[in-house]
Design a protein around this nucleic acid. Structure first.
Length: 980
DNA sequence: GCGGATCAC
DNA sequence: TATGGTGATCCGC
């Protein structure tokens, strides 16, 4: 068998070489390999030789052509390399790989799933067909959608001339002089796409739309329910699509999506093909299938497989399996072998969160730097706007360039901060661009931003704090859990909310709730009833399960906590309902969150939720394993809502993990003790880059950063260890942001209520595997006003020059903003205050390195007793470490600016939440803020419904603290006063 | 994390 | 005159 294989291979490589070494010099076009002669539906009778000749002649000598030749040469090189490696395989190697391959084939075979019926629908020449529909004069004539530069789709009449998608228009016109060009009109296509999707939805509410004109449907259930065959479903579906859109489509049915896609192409256009769910049928089907038909195998892969291994059909993948395993990576080999077996994904699909967002534009090549920079500006602005629309913050920026010679370059940079601001994007992108100059470019693929952060801050701030960028603050309460900070649920809910908010946000911001919600509801098949804040707006049937009933029923111990905020947020009666119908299930808003680690780890039970209620275990199942950090942040309020009394004590000591002992270690000076137990050792995400816990070397020097602090500096030492602890928390958190634990779920909105034009309630059904679960979701819109534009910089210590006199109030000297800024300058700190409406941000930079060291954010809230300075978060960067300043050192400056700003705005009260992420850290925070002048006013534990309001606003449990701004200014800031 | 490439629509 | 835009993934460093 080995001998046979190697012999076949030798012969094939010889043949391949003679095939491709140069080509016939009398027919040079034959060596110019384009995709345009590839078999495609509707191209059967085409004179390929002629097409190839014309394409060649039109392209010859162009920069594009030269680049194609370069790429072709690279491919040859790649093929030759692979051939060499292949030739070097010894008989023993081959035997070894053959064994491995055979085993792998068995393993893959065991995953075969023939239980599902997948249908792939593909609209026929979609864009072209839509254009024909809106302009019947085009019917029967060769037509292409696109421009002289590029064609998106050609109709079947045009395809007979060899015109096809991805072909430049000027070549197409050469092939077919009477070709009619129609510009693309995506609005039109989207409209028709929506019509088709309505049909798909009837057959599989969870269908996967892979593009405007393609979708996968799992029709297993509908076939079963209606007792009809998959072929009949396909016929019926195609007829429905045709009736409701006037467009034709083709369909393929197979046991998995990969095969279904292949099948839909077989009888295109306006046809279908059913591959039975039968192993033999699949094997037979696949055996003669050209590899190029398989999704994922393109021009290059086809060539490599053909020229190196003489593989042209899927069946041959199995015959050459040992070579595939020897020369390709495990994942590639697995893919090839799966194809050979006719395997594909048959499970319920995972719709992924977007991983990147980008834009790029082509223009005529130029070296003009001003022009290129201008393009970059435009692209940065567009991208920033797109990101804001989706509330995305990214940290890896990739600049894409295409030179005049079509060479593509990318230059990437990972930022320290997450951003979506056009300034940030532009600044960094232009730096990357400058490094490439001088260069002649024809494309700036501006930026790809990836590595998203789904939440803004650590310790405080609302989960949807990102929205603060956009005039309003959104927070969410989800059914039996409060979403605060980050964590699995935070991410999941964020996804849901983002989607809902995206649709209604603009209108909501404009105060047009009714239309917005009505539209959302209408769009998704819900009908509205008794809408708006009509005083008689109670549900027509008081016994029906409205959300208010839902809420009130659970709020068995709901009390008004008596303070302003909770009054404001507390759920009262008189909620107007929109609908309580339960049949809706819209696809666009179904999201899944995929766990890269696939949730295979066993659950970690070390954390303690309320054990008196089984729901807590259910929560565990929903979310999959959590890292210790996210555990600390997640509050299982369901237990609270169900059995408030019994759970109260548990809830109040929720953050139970080893952070307490960890922090003790940080403080302690016994190295032995520290070494015994590494911090966060139960956290798989951070175990790999475990950091040494802090210890004082020779009882003098910090083992982590080298800062020297004698044992007598007790308080400084404590603060120093606090810093490392906080750093650790932040690190862990950013780690979590990238590794969403498993939460494969879908959701649908069951109903929606509005209260007081400020809150939207959704009853959302989550689907978690076989289980269904209802959660209650609240979106709160805090009225923050509507400032326009970007953050305005008010003060900046780098530019402060004017001086006011310090206030003299009752004989006490109050520092002015400039006093504080000047004092910060002496510390080599550069402070900046920016505002956007009520929102403010204070950033501290090192004046030496210009690195950001920390920032605080918050807002000025208007309330009955006057304005309130609402402090949301203070965050410090790791560079702080090198400055021999403790975590609160820089915090002090930032806080001072915030307080002075609040004072200038006329705030009487300042409020904050000393968040309770971990008991010890929490008590430190409380101690610290108390020292500064704050008083505890309320303990937010999550143990009663009234607490939800606080948790909504603050994003977690902890101690609500308040202080008189003026007193604060005196107490906290006097040290900044100018010594006049 | 970066840069080049491939692929799909 | 003239060969696109967006997003994902993989490989090899």
């Amino acid at each position: 068998s080995i001998a046979r294989h190697s012999k076949t291979l030798d012969a094939s490589t010889e043949m391949a070489k003679s095939d491709t070494s140069g080509g016939d010099s009398s027919r040079p076009w034959q060596s110019y390999h384009t995709v345009f002669t590839n078999a495609k539906a509707g191209m059967e009778g085409v004179d390929k030789e002629k097409v190839q000749r014309i394409v060649y002649e039109m392209s010859k000598g162009s920069k594009f052509f030269e680049n194609e030749e370069r790429k072709e040469a690279d491919m040859r090189q790649k093929i030759d390399n692979m051939r060499d490696r292949c030739a070097k395989l010894t008989a023993a190697d081959i035997a070894h790989y053959q064994k491995a391959a055979d085993n792998r084939i068995l393993e893959l075979e065991s995953t075969r799933d023939l239980s599902r019926l997948w249908l792939h629908v593909d609209m026929d020449a979609f864009y072209a067909a839509v254009e024909t529909l809106s302009n019947p004069l085009l019917r029967g004539k060769p037509m292409a959608v696109g421009s002289m530069s590029m064609i998106s789709t050609a109709n079947y009449e045009a395809r007979r001339f060899g015109v096809r998608a991805a072909m430049p228009g000027f070549i197409a016109r050469k092939l077919c002089p009477e070709l009619i060009f129609v510009p693309t009109d995506f609005k039109k296509y989207t409209h028709y796409s929506d019509l088709t999707r309505k049909v798909f939805h009837r057959y599989d509410p969870l269908f996967i739309a892979s593009s405007l004109d393609e979708a996968y449907l799992d029709i297993t259930n509908i076939c079963k329910e209606r007792g009809i065959t998959s072929g009949e479903v396909a016929e019926e579906l195609r007829a429905s699509v045709n009736q409701e859109t006037g467009l034709t489509c083709s369909a393929g049915v197979a046991p998995n999506r990969l095969l279904a896609k292949v099948c839909s192409d077989i009888n295109k256009p306006n046809g279908q093909f059913v591959l039975p769910n039968d192993r033999l049928a699949v094997i037979t089907f696949i055996s003669s299938l050209p590899i190029r038909k398989v999704g994922g195998i393109g021009k290059v892969t086809e060539h490599v497989l053909k020229d190196v291994f003489r593989i042209t059909t899927c069946e041959e993948m199995l015959q050459k399996s040992c070579y595939l395993c020897a020369l390709f990576s495990q994942s590639s080999a697995d893919f090839f072998l799966s194809v050979g077996l006719g395997l594909g994904r048959a499970d319920t699909p995972q719709v992924q969160l977007r991983k990147s967002i980008s834009n790029e534009r082509t223009f005529s090549a130029t070296e003009n730097e001003a022009f290129l920079y201008q393009k970059l500006v435009e692209l940065a602005n567009m991208l920033s706007a797109d990101m804001e629309k989706e509330s995305l913050y990214g940290r890896t920026l990739t600049l894409k360039l295409k030179t005049a010679s079509f060479e593509v370059r990318t230059r990437a940079l990972t930022l320290h901060n997450y951003t979506c601001s056009s300034e940030d994007i532009l600044n960094h992108a232009s730096k990357l661009l400058k490094a490439e100059l001088p260069v002649s470019l024809r494309l700036i693929g501006n930026n790809t931003i990836s590595g998203f952060q789904w939440k803004v801050d650590f310790g405080g701030g609302a989960v949807i704090g990102c929205r603060m960028r956009q005039r309003s603050l959104w927070v969410a309460l989800v059914g039996d859990m409060v979403v605060g900070g980050d964590g699995v649920r935070g991410v999941a809910i964020f996804v849901i909310l983002t989607d809902l908010i995206r649709k209604i946000q603009v209108e909501v911001a404009e105060g047009r709730w009714e239309e917005a919600v009505a539209e959302e509801v209408d769009e998704n098949g819900l009908r509205m009833s008794q809408f708006s804040e009509d005083k008689d707006g109670a549900p027509s049937d008081p016994t029906q399960k409205t959300l208010s009933n839902f809420v009130l029923a659970r709020d068995s111990c709901g009390k008004n906590v008596g303070d302003g905020l909770s009054c404001d947020l507390h759920v009262t009666g008189n909620l107007s309902t929109i609908n309580t119908e339960t049949t809706m299930d819209f696809h666009e808003t179904c999201y899944d969150i995929r766990d890269p680690s696939d949730g295979n780890q066993t659950s970690d039970h070390s954390h303690n939720t309320c054990t008196s209620n089984n729901d807590s275990h259910e929560m565990e199942r929903i979310s999959g394993p959590l890292s210790s950090a996210s555990k600390r942040k997640v509050i299982d309020a369901s237990t609270v809502a169900h059995t408030p009394n019994s759970c109260q004590t548990e809830a109040s000591r929720l953050p139970v993990d080893d952070s307490l002992s960890l922090s003790r270690q940080y403080q302690g000076s016994s190295l032995d003790k520290v070494k015994k137990r590494a911090p966060f050792s139960d956290d798989p995400a951070s175990s790999s880059n475990q950091k040494e816990p802090l210890a004082w070397v020779d009882d003098y020097k910090c083992s982590l950063c080298g800062v020297e602090l004698p044992p007598s500096f007790l308080e400084e030492r404590q603060e120093h260890s606090d810093f490392h602890f906080a750093e650790r928390l932040q690190e862990e958190e950013s780690c979590n942001n990238h590794n969403y634990p498993a939460m494969k779920q879908r959701y649908r909105v069951i109903s929606c209520l509005m209260h007081d034009k400020r809150m939207l309630y959704f009853l959302v059904q989550l689907k978690l595997g076989a289980e269904e679960r209802f959660v209650f979701l609240l979106i709160l819109h805090m009225n923050l006003g509507r400032p326009k534009g970007r953050l305005t910089t008010h003060y900046s210590s780098s530019s402060s020059s004017q001086h006011e006199n310090s206030d003299n109030n009752n004989g006490i000297t109050m520092p002015t903003m400039y006093d504080i800024l000047d004092s910060s300058k002496a510390q080599k700190l550069e402070l900046r205050l920016q505002t956007l409406g009520p929102f403010f941000r204070i950033t501290a930079k090192s004046s030496e390195t210009q690195n950001e060291l920390g920032r605080a954010e918050g807002l000025i809230r208007v309330w009955l007793g006057g304005k309130i300075l609402h402090l949301d978060s203070i965050r410090l960067r790791r560079e702080t470490l090198g400055m021999e300043k403790s975590i609160f050192g820089i915090g002090l400056f930032i806080g001072a600016v915030a307080i002075r700003y609040g004072y200038d705005c006329g705030c009487r009260t300042a409020e904050l939440l000393a968040i309770n992420d971990s008991d010890l850290y929490h008590s430190k925070l409380v101690r610290f803020y108390t020292r500064i002048g704050f008083k505890s006013v309320y303990e937010v534990t999550g143990s009663n419904f009234g607490d939800f309001a606080h948790m909504l606003v603050w994003g977690g449990v902890g101690t609500r603290m308040e202080a008189n701004v003026q007193e604060l200014l005196v107490k906290w800031c006097t040290r900044f006063s100018s010594q006049k």
